[in-house]
Design a binder for these strands. Structure first.
Lengths: 188, 188
DNA sequence: AAAGATATCAAACAAGATGTTGCTTATTTA
DNA sequence: TAAATAAGCAACATCTTGTTTGATATCTTT
């Protein structure tokens, strides 16, 4: 009996999965995710709809892969943040890394933003930043004097996310350095 | 020919519209908006589906009314903010009003939050706060010295929204006064 | 290179949701 | 009370989703 090596995907599988994935991203630049139908993806990808269902349960399963890729890329980008958990320095360093990362991926983030009413991109940013912050919070659970750590982080996470989203939208108004400079002034 | 007074709705119309509206809100406590079907609303409201379509094009038209009601209630609640556009005082006063308003409407906001992944509530908060801030920005367009006004407001709007959402979720952890006190410390 | 394995395609199907329509019944208005 | 009109009912076409079948093409392994 012929047996297939494990973990080695058939070329056809790789090809169709890549194609479906790329086509979804393409469509996200045109439409809301909710507006995108499985048949839209298949038509554009020139792949039979039954083949789609052979790989994914539904379009949500496909988009999860995309979102978690963006998340892990961003998470990786800010993970090398080596600073101790001194609030101001930490957030400044983090936002520098985020902005750098966004600058590289500008196109895709912007395209999604313009069609998907903030929510996807905002979810990504909030999730990744939250994870990083909470991880550090656990390691540095000094009982804060005046303000609970959780409140501080909630405040800054919101502020940073908001700045990032705005920066993605109006790409050329301020440079990365400008933003960091302003944040430096805005944070205590 | 019998003619109807204009602007005066038939009782039946009022009744069904109220019913559909209330039923949608009820369902939002159980399901995501995307998961709610027109037939769900009609079944629960005991109203024929064709009657639904006689009033609204689709469920989006129905929810728009709900969201804009929440928005205008919130907008009204923060409009009486009489302070001049001194950043810190303005935002503190605003957040006090928002928190007071939320406290009254706690139940509905929380219910929606738990089922709808932040986005609806976040959209409401961001939109209302943005409008208020932008209105004041226009009236006070002093060319800021060090930081562009737009950047300042983006920063604080994000921070305030984030704090509000977190507060809605963990209702009893901090009092309204606590939050305001912490924000007072966090803002320059 | 050939045989065997398997992924894709094509076509058809059922189930569910969306809108629309024509007709009847019930309620409201004046 | 009569006229107007909203709501109910039932049927219909359409679209989207998932699933299934068997034929065809492509890949893997020997």
């Amino acid at each position: 009996m012929i047996k297939k090596e494990e973990n080695k995907k058939d070329l056809r599988v790789i090809k169709t999965e890549n194609l479906l994935y790329a086509t979804l991203i393409d469509l996200l630049k045109e439409k809301t995710f909710e507006e995108i139908k499985v048949s839209d993806i298949c038509n554009k990808a020139l792949i039979n709809r039954s083949t789609f269902y052979a790989h994914y349960q539904d379009k949500y399963e496909l988009v999860v892969g995309f979102i978690s890729t963006l998340k892990s890329e961003l998470a990786k980008a800010i993970k090398d943040n080596g600073s101790t958990f001194n609030t101001k320095e930490y957030y400044l360093e983090m936002i520098e890394m985020i902005l750098t990362h966004i600058e590289e991926k500008k196109k895709i983030y912007q395209d999604i933003l313009t069609n998907n009413r903030n929510s996807i991109v905002m979810d990504i940013l909030l999730d990744v930043i939250n994870n990083d912050v909470n991880e550090r919070l656990e390691k540095n659970l000094k009982e804060n004097e005046k303000i609970p750590s959780k409140v501080i982080s909630t405040f800054y996470i919101g502020a940073v996310t908001s700045i990032c989203i705005e920066w993605m939208k109006n790409t050329n108004e301020y440079s990365k350095e400008d933003i960091i400079h302003y944040l430096n002034l805005l944070m205590q």
